[in-house]
Amino acid sequence: MATFKQALIEKVIVIGHKYAIDAKRLGDDALLAWSNLGFWQGQHDNYPQACRSLADQIARSIQLKSTDRVLDLGCGQGASLLHWLTHYQIQQLSAVELQADCVKRIQKQLPQVQIHCESFLNLKALQFLNSFDVVLCIDAAYHSHLNSFLDSASTVLNSKGRIAFHTLMWSENWQNCTYLQKQKYHYLLKSADVNWQHLMDQQQLVQILAQHDFTDIEIQDFSEPVLNGFAEYIETRKIEKTAFDLAQLKINMTAKLCRKLYQDGLVRYIQISAVKK
């Protein structure tokens, strides 16, 4: 009875976690599933393919090599880790993930990966055996203030180490918005666990990165293939509906937010790569 009760509690916690998502509803039923917005390049892309493409964009931006010591922040259900191991032959791979159930599954399926159940804003507290050549974060850094993210990541990154992550950025049109428009975005972004006051424009982003001793900064705008791509995928995907479907509702709301952000053009989805001095 105690075992059943514990399993039930864990199930409720998984469903209720703010970053948890039903990957099967998105089109990935793998044990180590993907859970990002994807990089959509064509109408025939499927969800796992688009997610791998987003991961490959990050890998390409930092010229990921098999000999790199790699730290994957916010690795979710573990698909990215499997991708680094099998496609890039990464020999030394570590990861950090908040969701305990994901960490347990990864520990069982990928015992060669050193994974910690912790916030990636608290890397100083973790006992890593070595510092890293590469720190990467797929589709998750925008949930935190960039200062906090870089403060944490810098502590575990080698000199000349590379970092790459996705975040959100104000476009040039943001400054022309009215007070009411800005308040609307406050609530829109809050629904996705993003603090609108943490967002910056491109000049501010570059300044913050430079203050953290990063150079060779490259910013790529992925708004069309990510925001618009994910929205189109969900809008055209046929889903069997039930009377009350919380998991699908969460997915649909995410797609609507992506559509809104893309159409308004006030928020850009970007990929940043840089090198530590």
Rank of each mutant, 00 (worst) to 15 (best):
K241G: 09
A153Y: 03
E224G: 03
Y19H: 07
C51G: 05
K5W: 08
H166S: 09
E235M: 05
Q263F: 13
D56F: 04
R52M: 12
V113T: 05
D245A: 05
Q263K: 14
A2R: 11
D133G: 07
Q220Y: 10
Y88W: 10
G229A: 09
K241H: 12
C117E: 05
N147H: 12
R69E: 11
D22Q: 06
A153H: 01
S223Y: 06
I106D: 07
V14T: 15
Q181V: 09
F132E: 00
K160L: 09
P111M: 04
L64H: 01
S148A: 14
K277S: 09
A231T: 12
G76W: 00
Y187M: 11
G27D: 07
H145M: 10
L266M: 06
A125M: 12
E224H: 11
K24Q: 09
A95Y: 01
V275T: 12
N252Y: 12
A153F: 02
I62W: 03
K65C: 10
D133W: 10
A243V: 14
I272G: 01
I239K: 14
A55Y: 10
W196L: 09
C102A: 13
Y142G: 01
Y179L: 13
F244V: 15
L85C: 12
K160M: 09
D201N: 15
C51M: 02
Y233F: 15
L209D: 05
V267F: 00
L123R: 11
Q183L: 09
L98V: 10
N252W: 11
H44D: 15
Q211A: 11
